[in-house]
Structures are given as structure tokens and as C-alpha cells.
Computed example of a mutant assay.
Amino acid sequence: MSSDISYTTEEIAKLLKISKLTVYDLIKKGELASYRVGKQMRIDADDLEAYKQRAKSLSASERPAPSFAEQPAAIQAAAPVNGPRPIVITGQDVSLDILAKHMEKQLPGMRPLRAHVGSMDSLIAMYRGEADIVSTHLLDGETGAYNLPYVQRLLVGASYMVVNLLSRNAGLYVRRGNPSELLGWADLGRPGLRFANRERGSGARVLLDEQLRLHGIATGGLLGYDREQTNHLGVAAQVASGHADVGVGSEKAASLVGGIDFIPLIREQYDLVVMKNAASAAWIPDLLRIVRSEAFKGELEAIAGYDLSRTGDILHET
């Protein structure tokens, strides 16, 4: 029976041919019923079918009523909430899992949903109203600044807050002993090097592309440049297995994969971006309190490679 079948958010995204963040957005708006099993969100087959039937019932001539995200702020603030309110947190660093855990424990009216999405796609999702807290580590090669130049370009006209979460080392993954003798960004132009790359829009991909541009290295001649992995561990594993000579990523992932060395080249800034609106006004003070708390920072301090000297600082606010 269909009532015995349930799907993960990833499976729903594949079935409907939409992004996982769009699935979360449907859950947030109450258009797709869901429930939690451990850390995983599940959607019953019956609820999926009910959503599809509602979508089909809208004729081409009918205009659907505005979604919750499209309602005026006053209506959003007064709208009744049945059960915990979903809060979508995007990004791939383990610090975000720790943040979600603290929010769920300390804010019983909230239900954090973790979406493992790259920095650029996270900001685009926030612009579309599909994410509540996004993490970003995007280097602007022209200014040397992290994140704010991208945030200002993508969230034009919006009201938002940028809060530092941590800083961490980024650099090159190389095979144990560094047989290619790579020391810096300029060395990536050497012929014959095999790359393991990240997907477009990720912070590591932007970092690599900016450094290649600044050093005048054309991507067309780089072996494996189009071989994309969806996280740091995937890139590190490609190097460790001998399928690639070099990749770009964070120091933390290098410590989790044997058979590689890490060459630190830059201190990257890992920030949180929060859209300021009627809905978020209720929980932004709690978010700042948690990020600045000794309990939260104490867990991050146990992870090697994190600089917490500015954790919780508001870097920019509109």
C-alpha cells in the first residue's frame, strides 16, 4: 500500500525533478506534509500524491493564491503555525550541523532542516526565499574580501545580516609526500597535473577559479578540471586514491582522509547570511545568542583548524 511507502527529501527532489531546496520550501509553506525520523525528513507517498493532485487541479487559466513567502509581512507575522517552524540552513561544514543541533535543543518552536548546498547556490536560494540561514565562503579576487561582495550583488534591495561563524585554512590537497612539489597557486599551471574539482558555485570552486584567473592560468588545458565532486571529502578522496594529483579544499577534510598532505594557502572567512523580515525577526536574537554562547563555541574549539576569534560578530547589516 502507498501508505507504507515514504521518501527522503532527496528522493522527492528526484521524483519531482526539482532541487532539494525547493522541496524544503514546499515543506516550509505547508504545501508538502513531512515528519522527522531521527535527523532525516520523510514524506509519505500518500502526501506526495495529494500534493501532485492539488498541483494538477490548478488549470492553466487559474492563478494560484500567493504563497506564504509572497504574502505581506503583516500576514506572515500573524499566520498560524502548526507545530515547529522549519528553518532551512544551507552549507556543508560540520559547524552547521552543530548549530542546527543547538537550535533544535534550545528553540522548541523551530525545526532546523540541513541542506548541503554550495555557497553560490545557497545565496541564490535565499534570494528566492527558499533558505533562512545560508553559509558562504566566496573569495572576491579583485578585492581579496570574502562573501560581502557576492552578498551585495545577489541580494540587491534586500534587508539582511552577515554574521561571522568561523575562519579556517583552505589550500591544496596533494598526494602524500607532495611528489609534484606543489607550493602555491602558480604551480597549478604545470602541464600534466590531474585535477579533482568542486561543482560550480561552491566556495572551493570559486577560490580555484579566482586564483587561476589572477595567475593567468587557462582552465581549458587543465586535466580533470571538469571532474566535479560535491564536497571536500570527495576531492580529497580522489587525490588519496591516485585518480588526481591536486584538489582545492579545507584543512578539516584533509585531516579525515589518509594518504594526502595539505598545503595551506589562504585563511578563508566562513560567514552566515540571514534575511531580515517579519518571520526571522522572532528568532534572529536567539541565533546570535547561540552562536556567541560558550557551549556552541566550546564544541567548535574541539575541532582542529577553526579560528573563532570573530565568531558571532555582525560584519554587515542593512
Rank of each mutant, 00 (worst) to 15 (best):
L172V: 01
L172A: 02
Y173H: 07
V174Q: 03
R176A: 06
G177F: 13
P179R: 14
S180Y: 05
S180D: 15
E181F: 09
E181V: 13
L183F: 11
A186M: 01
D187I: 08
L188P: 10
L188R: 07
L188Q: 06
G189M: 07
G189T: 04
R190V: 04
R190P: 09
P191E: 07
G192W: 09
G192L: 08
G192E: 09
L193A: 03
R194F: 05
R194D: 05
R194C: 07
F195R: 07
N197Y: 11
N197H: 15
G201A: 06
G201L: 06
A204H: 07
A204R: 00
R205G: 00
V206Y: 00
L207V: 04
D209S: 03
D209G: 01
D209T: 02
E210Q: 15
E210V: 05
L214A: 13
I217W: 10
A218G: 06
T219R: 12
G220Q: 14
G220E: 14
G220L: 09
G221Q: 13
L223D: 05
G224E: 12
G224K: 12
Y225S: 00
L233F: 05
G234V: 04
G234R: 03
V235E: 00
V235T: 08
A236S: 06
A237K: 15
Q238R: 12
